[in-house]
Design a protein around this nucleic acid. Structure first.
Length: 504
RNA sequence: CGGGCUGUGGCUCAGCCUGGUAGAGCGCUUCGUUCGGGACGAAGAGGUCGUGGGUUCGAAUCCCGCCAGCCCGACCA
């Protein structure tokens, strides 16, 4: 084929269109007939399953247990916390009826008419603070019942105006942790612990460096006292919020009446937290690592880390080659990578070799192995890495490969992180003046993360957001951001830089 | 919810202005030749042209209503 790249357009030509084409080419998800709701296909769901399993281990390690709460929330629950209610009002799907009446039409078709109107409408959960809060209120009586450390894996629904596969869908999968504590200090510590879990997971599992920090009041979760975020940069230099952890103070405890009898025999309100990451992380992985040939999935979370492609030039040696591939796969599966058995697939489909090869390139499988009659004779395998060019191929003696396979996978994992880190660092700039700032985010400029001394108000943020489509992604933690200076907008003294960027 | 655009086989689209009853490329199936490789040839499957109504001898094509989707705003994990 004459195509230089598997994906058209390239990232440089049209990034949003590239993203859509990549998702399709990788066969990860598709739009469904229900607007805004996606069908997650096996390759995309396999990635989610790995993310889910690995994160779940970290949640358990930090003392949490899983539970499940209802999909439907009484409307009145949402009304209990004013800011929360306001924040989610415009994106709630509402269930108003509980049965259908079947009507036969004269033309022979059937119509289903909603009847049985509910006395109180039910909202499909956009998030579960309120209904979990109601449960917590029943469960907590004494300080001895605290802390309560619960997580749930589920779907939620937010009626988004403009859906995009994985990045913003009306229904999405996520986990939401909800905890209740005796003191503010404990709750804040929990919030920070989970914030750190997300940061580590993004870096070590998804090979994406993030900037951890706190959200400004304007960007805060509705009803939260503090919101912590991990912000990633993807290849069009925009920011994407990859996970959030909220300290909710006593706001939701008050709304749901989560009270306990304290050590001093007085009734007190609990301090609660919530934290979540969603299938949006899949979109983040695609945009952070993908290239003009498709997705590149970090080995730790890849549904298959290795795909073996049997090279079968002659019918008479086909079975022998396939047997050899199966044997190799079996040997590989006995090894572990990052604590999990190697995920190896032998692609035995009777298709043209080139077509098969490109399919796995587009899907982003980290490592492809080719094995044919010549390799059997020479006791070697041909190794192709997805972080290298599509034609790059190394012939390695089989024994040597078996010895080094996990190192090679780790090397791919590391190279992806290094690449993403280099991209981020090259596009993070310390600027001083409004002019520089405007130039940085001008239509024809590259953009990126602007680190600015800031002392403005929420209204000032609003103005910048409207004029330049730029928001404060976070007030970062970390010493490198502590710096005395003057706010670039107001000129007031400022002791810390914040991160501005365009965002998803 | 405002402004613009579009709905034709699985996908991308042509045809519509100047009505006459459906096309291309890719994909798919079969056969053959190739093949350490996203190859080539031949044959073939697949469409109530978003939907309802109107004009007409005749509508993918003209007119009206409705529905859906896309893009640009407001909102967002």
């Amino acid at each position: 084929m004459s195509n230089a790249t598997a994906i058209t357009p390239t990232r440089a030509q049209d990034f949003p269109e590239w993203y859509q084409q990549v998702v399709r080419a990788a066969d990860m998800a598709e739009n469904s007939e229900v607007r805004g709701c996606m069908v997650i296909k096996p390759w995309g769901y396999g990635l989610w399953e790995n993310i889910q399993r690995q994160l779940d281990v970290k949640f358990k390690e930090t003392g949490h247990v899983n539970a499940y709460f209802p999909l439907l929330i009484p409307l009145s629950y949402l009304e209990k916390e004013a800011q929360h209610a306001e924040g989610f009002a415009t994106e709630c799907a509402v269930v108003t009826h509980h049965r259908l009446e079947v009507q036969k039409q004269p033309d022979g078709t059937t119509k289903m008419i909603p009847t049985g109107e509910l006395a109180e409408p039910l909202v499909i959960r956009p998030t579960s603070e309120t209904i979990i809060g109601a449960a917590f209120a029943r469960w907590v009586e004494s300080y001895r019942d605290l802390p309560l450390l619960i997580n749930q894996w589920c779907n939620v629904m937010r009626w988004e105006m403009r859906p995009r596969l994985f990045l913003r869908t009306a229904e999405f999968l996520w986990q939401e942790g909800h905890t209740a504590h005796e003191t503010a200090e404990e709750a804040i510590a929990e919030t920070r612990t989970m914030h750190k879990v997300y940061e580590d997971f993004m870096r070590d599992h998804l090979a994406i460096p993030v900037i951890p920090g706190e959200k400004t009041e304007r960007e805060r979760f509705p009803g939260a006292v503090q919101t912590f975020t991990v912000e990633a940069m993807v290849q069009d230099k925009k920011a994407i919020q990859a996970g959030t952890s909220h300290y909710l103070g006593q706001n939701f405890a008050k709304a749901a009446n989560i009270q306990f009898l304290g050590r001093d025999n007085t009734r007190q309100l609990a301090h609660t937290t919530s934290w979540g990451v969603s299938t949006r992380m899949i979109g983040t992985v695609i945009m952070a690592h993908g290239d003009d040939d498709g997705v590149i999935i970090p080995p730790r979370v890849a549904p298959n880390q290795i795909v073996i492609l049997p090279v079968t030039p002659k019918a008479e040696t086909r079975q022998e080659v396939i047997d050899a591939c199966e044997a190799l796969a079996k040997t590989l599966r006995m090894q572990t990578f990052a604590g999990e058995p190697l995920r190896v697939h032998v692609d035995k489909r009777d298709l043209q070799g080139g077509a098969k090869n490109w399919e796995w390139i587009k899907k982003g499988v980290p490592m492809r192995l080719e094995m044919g009659p010549r390799d059997i004779t020479s006791r070697s395998v041909a190794v192709c890495r997805r972080d290298q060019g599509p034609k790059a191929k190394e012939f390695v003696p089989k024994e040597e490969f078996l010895q080094s396979v996990t190192e090679r996978l780790q090397d791919i994992q590391d190279s992806l992180l290094a690449r993403a880190t280099a991209l981020r660092d090259a596009n993070m700039k310390k600027l001083e003046t409004l002019e520089e700032f405007k130039a940085f985010f001008a239509e024809d400029s590259e953009g990126g993360f602007a680190m600015m001394n800031w002392a403005g108000s929420s209204d000032d943020e609003d103005t910048l957001s409207k004029d330049l489509k730029v928001t404060i992604r976070c007030i970062p933690h970390g010493d490198q951001f502590a710096e005395e200076g003057k706010c670039f907008l107001t000129g007031k003294p400022s002791s810390r830089r914040v991160v501005f960027a365009r965002s998803y």
